[in-house]
Design a protein around this nucleic acid. Structure first.
Lengths: 115, 115
DNA sequence: CCGTATCCTCCTTGATACTG
DNA sequence: CAGTATCAAGGAGGATACGG
């Protein structure tokens, strides 16, 4: 499944980070959770197009990697809240910079200009 | 293949960025090129485990997305050099932070400690 | 409301051999 | 040296229906 993270020969930890954070949804979920705790259904609505199955899988993987915390309230109807761990919150600057970079990239791609 | 980047409904540009930079090798290649221009063979040797086919594909995609520049020298034997564009260089801080994050993450995973 | 169960497609990645 | 060609496997991601 995942290559052994401790078996990275040289000093490029970018590969380690991308192995945990890669994929289509992970960092977008972190982006949402940086704005505060969310319930399953809230995330589902805000993530335009994700299926419940996918959302569950991504959240479980993030939980295993200690990025996300899952809090279950045994009520009727059931309530489950997701939030970031400290490790998850430590991604704030990276996610922010990626957001900025993506916005600028899109601007350039949309109205290209000469150098 | 790729979803239309201009068709992202809300303000989460993280998805845009990950669509361009996601995958196993892209940011690791950027990491190497931040240290200077590289030839194909140099990258191949430094990227432990990448096949020439994969390296070619990743470099071509990065070239299409204007992250990487390809310079062909018509010599014998042939020489091709890869370097970052300005857009590529603008990833420096992100790549640096990902490297740091990955290193710290690995430390925590290797010698876990209680809070 | 918060998920699971099933079934499915196709992209990503890889191994190996070969070429200008 | 710098790639292509070919073949193959596996997993990421998706559609739909159902369960506690």
């Amino acid at each position: 499944m995942r290559t052994d993270l401790t078996d990275k020969p040289d000093n490029c930890m970018v590969e380690v980070a991308m192995e945990i954070l890669g994929g289509r949804w992970k960092l977008a979920i972190v982006y949402k959770l940086l704005q505060g705790t969310h319930r399953f259904g809230e995330l589902r609505r805000e993530m335009h197009g994700i299926t419940p199955r996918m959302l569950t899988r991504q959240l479980r993987e993030l939980e295993e990697d200690a990025i996300v915390e899952r809090m279950v309230y045994r009520e009727v109807p059931p309530r489950v809240e997701y939030s970031l761990t400290e490790t998850g919150k430590s991604l704030e600057e990276i996610v922010y910079l990626l957001d900025v970079w993506g916005r600028r990239y899109l601007d350039r791609a949309t109205n290209p200009r000469k150098e």
